[in-house]
Design a protein around this nucleic acid. Structure first.
Lengths: 203, 203, 203, 203
DNA sequence: CATGAATGAGTGTTCATTCAT
DNA sequence: AATGAATGAACACTCATTCAT
């Protein structure tokens, strides 16, 4: 992350690099405000202040407030998607069980990195569900590839299987991080969830 | 103040009946505005107008705007809870499979009655997730009763099972109504989901 | 105050008596609210509640909110005026010094009966100054009578004397009750004030 | 941040100058509305309009409506205080009579500059009395200094004298401007008032 | 490009007043 | 006469957005 960049194309397009830094600062500022003041306390001026830029600059990079939230959602979706695809690639030719476990772990890690933030993103921001739906689509796409590449059990409806597996992975990973009952460890939750998915797929 | 009142609920307070009518009108007005203008377009004045009452009356029954949303969530939770409990009672002594099917149907019906509304409640209103979480708790409670009343497979962790089943039912019912892929009928989605849950429980 | 009324015209115009009771209840309720919630917290509904009547009844007796305040001011002015006139009558043929003392005591008693209330009336209610001005007029009238009935020092302008004495009595009585510095007893303040007025008049 | 700024207040912040202009415009706007519409007609939007700024700007400089009134009171108190202190300084070593006259004139001028305004400030605005009380305190402080610096008559209570003189000056100056009876010139009122105070002090 | 003061439409909420019961 | 639910004009205040500097 550091030595490489100095060795490569030095100071190439510094403008765009600065722009990306400002964008990131704004998104991080949004997160800061979100955690500090909750969803009702988010204002563009506060975001700008927390990001260390002026409101004017904020509007240079985002057409309006919603766009900031959308970008924040996107950043999360992007991160999670990368994990999903990495799992997909790593287990391309391996048994399905391993892939399912890897996907479950990818989803959990995506939220576990900052559970508070993702809970807020979902609950406090309008359109919070959109990110979840988009991520769900990516997961479904990954699963479609994975299942299509393997011998299907006869008489099985791919769409139905996809529907069930994608929802199970999504809900169980999400729930394991954000909605786990007391007395149930994350590890136990994950193993039980994996068992459920695996058994279903083996049926 | 006299013996008469103890004799029975004769002449039920017309005041309270009217109040409840007004409250319902306000909640229905909120739904109307929500569908017409989206989550960003909800204002107390618009709600009052859609409900056919004055803003002043609205504030006679609700201390502030959030309370209206909370009541709307509650109404939904209450309706769904009643279905869940009815299913629980109806299958108290029946095999688990039947109960699971009944619960799944209850959850689906709860959202199917007005899918658009419940999607909006979840996505557009702040704190929208609260209703979903509360409903999840009710579902978990019902399942706990159901599982505790039946012979448990040895070596099984009740909490882990509860966690998985509750999330599966919730996510699959919700997804079947609101997030079903094209080319997959509601019926097919439900049967596949039920199969997944049932197989998991039989493990 | 009690025996007489029963002995006199019994149950005469009970309607008007009730009306006066209601009016008094409303004025007392206003005072209650004023003390409880301050000048900013006065609403007609609160006044009615504190008075134990309905808003509707309140409007039966007062055309609007301002009229309530006006009546409250009037009541105060009336009470104080009665004291002023009593002092005037009692000292009609006595030396001026005695009258001045009696007037000072009358003014002090008028505010001392409930200093908190009269401070609030002056400070928190709009038009509070009107009552003070009216009282000032009554005081000036009393003094005019008193001075006119006595031999004037030659070369003295009655209007100027009236102006000075009325303002002195008013300000010093008011100040002695509501604005007295610590370490100065009410008695000491009164005597000093009287000395100032008396000396001025003897000049 | 550099040595330059220490060299002197060159290039005084134009920002701060503009801010003060806006604040003054708002206060003047408040006065305009107060005179036009009375105390009951003052709204933040009207004030902003009369000041030639937007409501938003108004709230950039004042946290709420009360703060505007407070600032208006302060401005008045500040102006009057300056006059009082100037009188005090100018007559520091002169006879008491001259100081008393100067203080009386200072107080009269303070209100005479815009009698209507100060009558409104006192009568129409809630908490209007606060300014009067604060000014009274300043006056009392000035008198305390003045009396303490001069030989006291033996047997005289400083606090009592202060109480009487401060209230006399205050009430008579105020009354001469705002409550003077017809047929009494301002000059005559002032001279008579001064005579009363002077005689009292010589006792 | 950056700034942040200025904008003003729009919001939630209050409360004096009315009037059907 | 009394009631108190209903009314809705009006208010204080916010905040996304703009634009002169």
């Amino acid at each position: 992350m550091s030595g490489r960049q100095l060795a490569g194309p030095r100071r190439r397009r510094p403008i765009q690099r600065r722009a990306q830094q400002t964008i990131d600062a704004i998104l991080d500022g949004t997160v800061k405000v979100l955690k500090r003041a909750g969803g009702g306390g988010i204002t563009t001026n506060r975001i700008a202040a927390a990001a260390g830029v002026s409101v004017g600059s904020l509007y240079q990079y985002f057409p309006d407030k919603r766009a900031i939230f959308a970008a924040l959602h996107d950043r999360h979706v992007e991160q999670a998607s990368r994990r999903i695809e990495a799992a997909l690639v790593a287990h391309a030719d391996a048994p399905l069980d391993g892939l399912v476990r890897a996907l479950m772990e990818a989803l959990m890690e995506a939220h576990a990195s900052d559970p508070e933030l993702y809970a807020l993103l979902d609950r406090e921001l309008p359109q919070g569900g959109a990110a979840a739906r988009m991520l769900h689509e990516r997961l479904r796409g990954a699963l479609r590839l994975a299942l299509a590449a393997r011998p299907a059990k006869p008489g099985r409806d791919l769409e139905a299987t996809l529907f069930v597996v994608a929802h199970m992975l999504d809900a169980l990973a999400h729930g394991a991080i954000l909605n786990r009952p007391p007395h149930l460890s994350l590890r136990a939750a994950r193993e039980e969830a994996l068992m459920a998915v695996t058994h279903y797929l083996q049926t």
